[in-house]
Design a protein around this nucleic acid. Structure first.
Lengths: 224, 224
DNA sequence: ACAAATATAATAGTATTACTATTACAATAA
DNA sequence: TTATTGTAATAGTAATACTATTATATTTGT
C-alpha cells in the first residue's frame, strides 16, 4: 500500500482556505504547527498571533491562507475525515463478506489512531486528539447551515453514508442505518473523551476497547 | 404530581455561581433572559453586555452572579440535567418491571422537551435547544479536569449512572452498561442536532423518533 | 427613628482578541 | 530589466471579556 499511494493528497473543499496550504512551505508549516499548538493549548486559547510566533512568521501572513481560526479548524477536521475515509475504503475494499467488511470499518473508525508516515507534516495522533476535543465546535455554530450548503462537511457526511451502506449490506431491513452510522462516528469521539476526563461514565479502557463496545452494539442492533 | 412538588427547586453546585440567581429578582431575570438570548443568537455571540441590555440592567451587575459566561452556561446545563433527573426518578419510581422502567427512562431522555409550568422563569423548550446546540462546549475545555473535580458535572454523571443501573437491572451480564448509558444521553442531543442541520445523516424525524431509535437499540444490544 | 453595615447596581475603565488596511520585499516571467 | 505576482511585515481598529471604583439602595441594631 505504501509504495502505490506515495503521492496521494487528501483533498479538502477549496472554499475552506484562501490559499492552499499544501501549495507552499509556509502553508505546510501552518498545518504542522497549528496541530501542535491546538493540541497543546486548546482551540479557545489558540490564535494566529501565537501560531505565527511558533512558526517564526507573522500573524498577518497566516490570514493569507485562512480567513480565520475557525476555517483552519474546518480544514484540519476535513482533512482528518478524508484521511479516515481513505483508510476505510482501502482496508475494506478486498473484503467480500458484508459482516466482515462492517467489522473492519468499525475498527478503522473506533481504534485509537496511529501515526501515518505518508504525510510528514501531519501528526495524525495529535490530530485525532484535536478531533476528540474540538470537533463539535466546528459545527455547533450559528453559521452551520450556510457552511453546510458550501459543502464544508461533505467529507464527514460521505464517510457516514459509506458506513450506512455497509450496515445495509448486512441487514437491508434495519430501519435506522444512517442514525446508527452517525452515532458510532460521533459516539467514538465522545467515548474517547470520557475515557480521558470522565472515566466513571464509560466502560472503555485498554482492556475493554471502544471498538469492541461498538462492534458488539452494531452487530446486536442489526440482528445477526 | 403538580401540587405535591409545587415548591421544588433544582439545586445546582454552589461553586458555579457567585450569588444564587434563584435568590433575587435580578437573578431570576438573568436566568430567564440568558436562555432567551443564548437560544436566539448562540453562545458565541452572547455576552454580558447584550444580556444586560436585554434585562435593562448593567453588564457589571451580572458579574455579581456569575464569574463569566462559561459559568452561566454550566449553571443552565446543570439545571437542565437536574430537571431531567427529577422527571426520570418520578416517572420511573412506580414501575416495578425493569424492562418497562428502562423503556420509560429512554422516553424521558430522548423525547422532544415540552414546557414545564412549575418553573416560570425557565423555558425548558428553549433550554433543551441550548443543550443540543451548546452542551459540548461546557466540557470541551482545557479546564474540564479541574472543573470536574469541583463537581460541576456531577448531576450529569449521576443521571447517567441512574440509567446504567436500570440497564443492569434488565441484564446484569451486559459488559458496557455505562458506556451505553452515556452514549444514549450524548447521542440523543446529537441526533436532535442532525435532524435540524444534517438531515441526510439521521433517520430521526417526526415519524421515526429518536426515542424509537434508541429504545430499539438498547433493548437489542442488551439482548432481551 | 436613625446611623452603621451590607447588599446591589452603575460608571468608566483596561487587557486581550480577532481581524484588516497598507506597505515592503522577494521571486518569477515577458 | 521591468512588470507582475507571490509572500510577508507593520501598524493599526473594533469588539469582547472582564475589573476597579463609586454610587445608591436596603437591611439591621440600638
Amino acid at each position: 500500500m505504501d509504495r502505490l499511494l506515495i503521492n496521494i493528497k487528501i483533498s479538502v473543499n477549496e472554499k475552506i482556505y484562501i490559499k492552499d496550504p499544501e501549495s507552499s512551505d509556509l502553508g505546510k508549516r501552518i498545518l504542522k504547527h497549528s496541530i501542535e499548538l491546538i493540541h497543546s493549548i486548546g482551540f479557545e486559547s489558540f490564535n494566529f498571533k501565537k501560531l505565527g510566533k511558533e512558526i517564526g512568521s507573522n500573524e498577518s501572513s497566516l490570514y493569507r491562507y485562512f480567513e480565520n481560526k475557525h476555517k483552519l479548524l474546518l480544514y484540519l477536521t476535513s482533512w482528518y475525515w478524508g484521511w479516515l475515509e481513505y483508510k476505510l475504503v482501502f482496508s475494506t475494499n478486498g473484503i467480500s463478506n458484508p459482516k466482515d467488511k462492517l467489522i473492519k470499518a468499525v475498527e478503522i473508525i473506533c481504534d485509537v489512531i496511529r501515526e501515518d508516515s505518508r504525510f510528514s507534516h501531519i501528526n495524525e495522533v495529535k490530530l485525532s486528539k484535536i478531533l476528540i476535543a474540538e470537533y463539535s465546535k466546528s459545527y455547533l455554530t450559528k453559521e452551520v447551515d450556510t457552511e453546510n450548503k458550501e459543502g464544508y462537511f461533505s467529507i464527514y457526511k460521505r464517510l457516514i453514508i459509506r458506513i450506512k451502506e455497509m450496515i445495509e449490506q448486512v441487514n437491508p431491513e434495519y430501519q435506522y442505518s444512517v442514525s446508527l452510522a452517525s452515532s458510532v462516528v460521533e459516539g467514538t469521539l465522545h467515548q474517547h473523551f470520557l475515557r480521558e476526563h470522565f472515566p466513571s461514565i464509560t466502560d472503555c479502557s485498554d482492556t475493554k476497547t471502544t471498538t469492541s463496545f461498538y462492534s458488539d452494539l452494531i452487530l446486536k442492533t442489526i440482528q445477526i
